[in-house]
Every structure is written in C-alpha cells, then in structure tokens.
Nucleic acid binder design. Sequence first.
DNA 1: TTTCTATTGTTAAAAAAATAACAATATTTT
DNA 2: AAAATATTGTTATTTTTTTAACAATAGAAA
Lengths: 206, 206
Amino acid sequence: METLPDKTVERLSQYRRSLNNQLAKGKEHIFSHEIANLLHITSVQVRRDIMLIGYSGTLRKGYDIKELVHLIGVILDTDQGQKIAVIGMGNIGKGFIHYLYEKRSKLKIVAAFDINPEKIDKTYADVYCYHLDKLEEIIQNENIKIGIITTPPLVAPEIANKLVNAGIKGILNYTPKPLSVPDDVYLEEYDMITSLEKVAYFVKEK
Amino acid sequence: METLPDKTVERLSQYRRSLNNQLAKGKEHIFSHEIANLLHITSVQVRRDIMLIGYSGTLRKGYDIKELVHLIGVILDTDQGQKIAVIGMGNIGKGFIHYLYEKRSKLKIVAAFDINPEKIDKTYADVYCYHLDKLEEIIQNENIKIGIITTPPLVAPEIANKLVNAGIKGILNYTPKPLSVPDDVYLEEYDMITSLEKVAYFVKEK
DNA sequence: TTTCTATTGTTAAAAAAATAACAATATTTT
DNA sequence: AAAATATTGTTATTTTTTTAACAATAGAAA
Ligand SMILES: NC(=O)c1ccc[n+]([C@@H]2O[C@H](COP(=O)([O-])OP(=O)(O)OC[C@H]3O[C@@H](n4cnc5c(N)ncnc54)[C@H](O)[C@@H]3O)[C@@H](O)[C@H]2O)c1
Ligand SMILES: NC(=O)c1ccc[n+]([C@@H]2O[C@H](COP(=O)([O-])OP(=O)(O)OC[C@H]3O[C@@H](n4cnc5c(N)ncnc54)[C@H](O)[C@@H]3O)[C@@H](O)[C@H]2O)c1
C-alpha cells in the first residue's frame, strides 16, 4: 500500500481507540456515522479513510469492529511493536509512561533516561530509568527506534543529537525548542502553548 | 481583520516564541528565511503569514523583531490576557502550570481544581488548587474563559459539562476521551498517542 | 416477489494549505 | 551614476484535505 495521508494516519489512531472502547461495551458492528459521531467528524471522512486502508464493511451491519481494529493494527503497528525511550522523567515524561502503561499499547516504552540521581535506577510503571550516560548503549542493545524528549528545553538539541547518533529513527519532541535532525529521522514536535494560544484566539474571535 | 487560517494562528504562536528567543540574544531584525530555519518551514510560508497579519518588513533588514512580536501579541492576546483554569492536578496538569509559569505568558492560569484532598488548598507555581465543587463559583467570579482538562478520561465529559455550564468559551482536552460541546464553545483536543503512533507509522514506512 | 430504505464505496468537486514564481525595490558595489 | 544583489510582498499554481454527490446493493418491509 502506498503511504497513507498524514491526516488519515492520525485519524486511524483515533478510530482504533474509540473502536476498542466500543468493543469493550460489547458492540460488534458499527456504522460510519457512528464512528464519525464519536470523533466529531463526518461519516464521509470515516468511509474514505477506511476505503484507503482497503477494508470493506457490509451494507446492513456496517463495519466489523474487531476486523477493523485488527487491520488498523496491521497498518500502524510493526510486527513486534516498536520500542520507545523517554528522556527526561519529569511531569510530562512520567505522565506519558503511566498513560501508555494503562493503554497496553503495542508501542512499548522500554527505557527512561534522566540525569537527576533521584530519578535514576528506579522503575516507573515497569519502565526502568537509567542515567543519560547509558543512552547509546541501551538504545542499541534494545534496538529502540523512537525517542520522546521531555527534558528542559535547553538540553533538547544535545539529547536529539545523542538519539540520532545512537540510531533512533523517530523523535517526538515535547520541549518548545525546535530541533534539527537528518532527513531520515522523522520528527514530530508539539507545544502545549501553541494549542492553548489557538484556543484563546478562536475564543476571542467568536 | 477577517479570521486568520487555523494553521497561520498556530504558526504565529511559534513565531513569537522563536522571536522572543532571538530578542533575548540581542538580535533586532530578522529575515523570513531565518525565521523559517528556526521552525523548519519555508520562508515563503513565513512571508505569507506575516502578510496576512498586515505587517511589513524592510527590504534590507527584514522584519523588526520587536514590532513583529508586538503585533502577534495584538492578534493572539486579548487586552488583559485571558484567564484559564486547569482541572486535574496530576502529572500533565502540574506540568502545564509550571510551563506557563516559566513562560510568563499573557495567558494566565488563575485556578486549578481537583478532588483529591492531597492536591486541594495548595499552591502550585502561584496557582491555587480548589475543590471541584468550587468550579462554577470561581470561574464566574474570576471571569475565566478557558478550561484545560487533565483529569482521568472517565470523568472528562462530566467536567466539560460543568465548564460549559459555568460559562467557559474554550476547552483544551488532554484526555483521550472525545468530548461534545455546544457550537459556541471552541474545542481543541490532543492525544499524545496519536502523535506517537504517527511517528511510529512514518518510521516504519521509511 | 417487488418496493423501499439505509448504508457503503467511490468518484467528482470544493476548500484549505503549501509552494512557486516573480515583479518591485532599497541598498551595496562597481 | 549604473549595475548587481538580496529580499520583500503578492499573485498564481500545485498539492493536500475535506466535503459532496451518487450509483450500487443488501436486507427489510410491503
Ligand atoms: N510541550 C508541552 O506541551 C509542554 C508542557 C509542559 C512542559 N513542557 C516542556 O516539557 C519538558 C518537560 O516538562 P516537565 O514539566 O516534565 O519538566 P520537569 O522539569 O518536570 O522534568 C524535566 C526532567 O528532565 C530531567 N533532565 C534535565 N536535564 C536532563 C538531561 N540533560 N538529560 C536527561 N534528563 C534531564 C530532569 O531531571 C527532570 O526529571 C520541558 O521542556 C517543558 O518546557 C512542554
Ligand atoms: N493527552 C495526552 O497526551 C496524555 C498523556 C498522558 C496522559 N494523558 C491523559 O491526561 C489525563 C491526565 O494524566 P495525568 O498523567 O496527569 O493523570 P494523573 O492521574 O496524574 O492526574 C489526574 C488528576 O485528576 C484528578 N481528578 C480525578 N478525578 C477528578 C475529578 N472528577 N475532578 C477533578 N480532578 C479529578 C486526580 O486527583 C489527579 O490529580 C488523563 O486523562 C490521561 O489519560 C494524556
């Protein structure tokens, strides 16, 4: 399958989450407009996304939730699930680990790193926290491919470099410091202030 | 000025952050391609955004950083700055408060809410944490217009209702539970897992 | 059995966003 | 003083994303 549109990939992740919720409630089939309502989007968009991943529902029952969740998994997850490291075990880093732990996602955080002795050599929701010095060693031994940066902004570029050198292929940056990485490393950045200022702007405009 | 495109609003917030960094370094003028490099976007996009907000640079010096920052402020900020409440003082909620505190943004978090007695009646980076029961009272007295939800997902819809009833006009939802709000309330939702699964997908595709 | 209905899958159109193209021009160089 | 240069501002084009339109049809109702 050729690469899916950016936005479709984002939505697939959201579909899966909502679909799993529905499964848990005992629902087995679902219509496009029901999925749409759960996510506040249109049913056309849902059908289009599902078309793009090559799945078909039935005319009277809609989509088989289990099958759909499974297929989304095939697309989003790798075979063994991808391994992830978190660098910076502060509020955000810890929140992330607990969140993923609860979700039992295929994506596994397998190591955390910090420089504060109080954080190091402890376990947070089954994730062991190492000293930053061990970064390269652990990442290579464990074959970790994704890094999440939640350190103070100032050190983020230095961490990004270390991650790239250690062979990481994807970085999720939660610090407000924009990073530079080689072309073959996928970089996603997020800043809460941007979200917040966006809300503030549209509240003001209304 | 008619309403700016969604994406431009997001970028303005990012421009301002980077521009303030440059100001702090003593830089007074900046070219579109320099801003572009800081944010990993193209210079055309920068110029186009700046055009949209009606600012002009000079041909040989580029943009006056102070003026530009000021103008972005006029657009993104309200006169006295908007007041914000955070509901749920866990990892994410606390992280947010500390982050905004450091930034000294125009956007002010003026109240926090929780139900855990250990969290209540304490102050976090100058923000006082009240019991959830006080929500409506405080929001109305303080004229708070924006709410950030960082509670466990299960209670998020209930919190959203309370916020709407109290007169909130914008909600930033960090729980993975999709919310429904009236049309006149602006809703922004963010889920870290979506970002992470997106990174994982594109890492896998490369 | 035939008609009706609700829903899918898909193509077409529209809207939004990003990128390219380039004219205008202030400043520097020759 | 003329030519060269670098950069802006803006329009045009392309690409991406969303929305609309609708034919096809499984199953329910008549
Ligand atoms: N992106 C957002 O939306 C958002 C929101 C809030 C905070 N933040 C940012 O996220 C980051 C983390 O925020 P937080 O509230 O968790 O901060 P925090 O201060 O609670 O945690 C930072 C952690 O990084 C560790 N650290 C410091 N230097 C390090 C290094 N060189 N290597 C490894 N670890 C190191 C610290 O010991 C600490 O545990 C900050 O950059 C902050 O600005 C982002
Ligand atoms: N969106 C994301 O990217 C992301 C990442 C990690 C966690 N999360 C989500 O963010 C939320 C917060 O995560 P966290 O790690 O900070 O969780 P947390 O458990 O540390 O904090 C939750 C807080 O909410 C409080 N609370 C519980 N019920 C409440 C109620 N009815 N009213 C007010 N407060 C209440 C708790 O006392 C606690 O202080 C969760 O929904 C979690 O799933 C989101």
